[in-house]
Design a protein around this nucleic acid. Structure first.
Lengths: 195, 195, 195, 195
DNA sequence: CATGAATGAGAGTTCATTCAT
DNA sequence: GATGAATGAACTCTCATTCAT
């Protein structure tokens, strides 16, 4: 059952991604994807067997392409504070996009499919983000940019706040203001100046 | 549209609630509710016209009965810190329940139906919770229990952390430990002693 | 899930019977039956859930209505030989009908579904036919109409010959002559005169 | 339509045979055969155009290789009774095998495809078996081994009993005992001693 | 008011068959 | 000759919704 044309596979995943962005996870049917891809009903089944599988593959692709969220922000002479701020700004953009984001689909998918710890991509991303932020804060503390007694705790706290903002964006709705306020709250708690 | 038997209406909502707790929002069909209620198909339509409407009514009932989350915790001689801690412990319980909670259904519902600001019950609850916490913190500050420069900001921050924990509980899964750590992080940031 | 209108149920079974007679068992789809009955797709599922179930019910009806194959042949003053001959003539008619018979469908069904001994309607019918024939032969022997050393064996043998003719009719094809020859072979072996 | 590789053709038929043995005729799809043969979808169509055609060819091969059912049993000094008994024992083995036999597939095929008399392989086999048994009985009668007034009739009767047993084995199920009883019934009717 | 049979749209899935390579 | 990706028809099954009783 060799995986057929690898381009087509990728094409389907990219197209499906748009569908998920638009409709979330649950509402998406194989038919939706077939139609978006303009391929035949049977054609899709040649590559994938369910929306769940397709979604997971979309996520995989996604994380392959973007596990460098931070690396983008890192330039030689950027300070820890610079990087943290940049990262938070990125998150803000993402948060406010609301549509054009997989967020909703991801949540919906994980509501239904809570895979074993190990397979939970979401968890991996969360944990790795915590680690990176922790490192960043430690660096900042060493440089005298930040003041912080519990770097790991703070990193975790930041991530939960971001998660809270993310889900709020999708449910109760948030404004740029709200995000800005939370970001400065975080930065102030680190004693970053001029915020 | 004469409102028929008000007991039956209530009976349906209570039964439907259980269904939503069990299956979330999206997966619930009118058929599910009909079967859970053991009433006739047509009968349900006499009272409600869609799962969405039913869900909203369930939420309404819910909030009528439970906008006193705090009042429970408040006894005459409880300190602000006592109350806050009690509140956070309540939230912890709720968070770890995971199943047996409307949380997932609520998120799912609001993913699809983002009503005008004003009708967003979720938002109202969030905002009112922020206000209450803010008050609480202010009281605590006045009493010298807490140290806090931006009460409103802190209150908001607490709520976002809780939201973050809530959604994490439903997706990546969290442990009691994780919640405890966040709670003490919050309390420490308020300079609450002995945490 | 009460069984709805009993007439409709029966109507469906009778219509389905015609479909099975025409197409056998395997080739029949739920759609075929829906169309033959001129009811809606969902309507059929209200009553039955698979062609297999429908077929079994058809058989049940069938056997309720026809377990009196013999009783028809029995009149007060008929001799055992008369009855046996009548019975064999009935079988001949059935055999030669070829179409307009459930035979094929029955075989196809039992190829796939070999239920526990006890539930095998086919087996029950076979066994009960053997018993009746045995009785008949015994009576004939007592009356001096037949000569037979092993009544049970002969009865069984007759039934297997009939089965052989039945399946042959459906596969290699047989003529009236063939059946007649087998019938007289049987009767001769019982020493029935004038055959 | 140049006949391509004759080995491949044969390979396909042998593999397909196994598939038919396992699943009968109707349930077998071109896909099943393609997969069992581990060849390409298009490849199969180069050699055959339908499961029906493949099945017929399988039967042809089969009969080429096994029209010597009897010859196996015939040794120089075997008596007619010996040979008949051996033949019936062979049939018994076949009957009880149930799975691992083409029987079901053959019946299913002929249910749907009743070719003109002449092409009906099944019929040919039946007729030729009758002839051989007839010869055998005649020989036995001449040798004083058997008593029989209508050799052809008896031969035919034996074959129908065998057919009856065969179809019963596939539908209502039979035991070794049942077969033994029928075999001795047959032999007794031929006055074979010691049965 | 209440019932529940009936309808029909729509989602999922599998395969026979073709055809460009 | 051979491959296997692609197509589209055909089936199965489930529900929201209506409507006669």
């Amino acid at each position: 059952m060799g995986e057929k044309s690898i381009q087509k596979r990728r094409y389907i995943l990219e197209t499906a991604r748009r569908v998920f962005v638009e409709k979330g996870f649950k509402r998406v049917t194989m038919k939706d994807i077939v139609e978006a891809c303009e391929i035949s009903r049977g054609g899709l089944y040649l590559y994938f067997e369910s929306t769940g599988q397709i979604f997971l593959e979309v996520l995989k692709l996604e994380s392959e392409e973007t596990d460098d969220v931070f690396s983008d922000s890192i330039t030689e002479d950027a300070t820890a504070a610079d990087i943290l701020i940049l990262f938070l700004q990125e998150q803000k953009k993402e948060l406010l996009r609301k549509k054009d984001t997989l967020t909703q689909a991801i949540y919906e998918y994980y509501f239904e499919n809570q895979p074993v710890r190990k397979d939970n991509i979401l968890r991996k991303q969360f944990d790795s983000a915590v680690k990176i932020i922790e490192k960043l804060i430690e660096t900042g503390v060493e440089n005298g940019e930040f003041y912080c007694e519990d770097c790991k705790g703070t990193a975790r706290n930041i991530m939960f706040v971001l998660e809270g903002l993310k889900i709020s964006a999708q449910t109760i709705g948030i404004t740029a203001d709200t995000v800005d306020r939370e970001i400065s709250y975080i930065l102030r708690s680190l004693d970053v100046e001029g915020v």
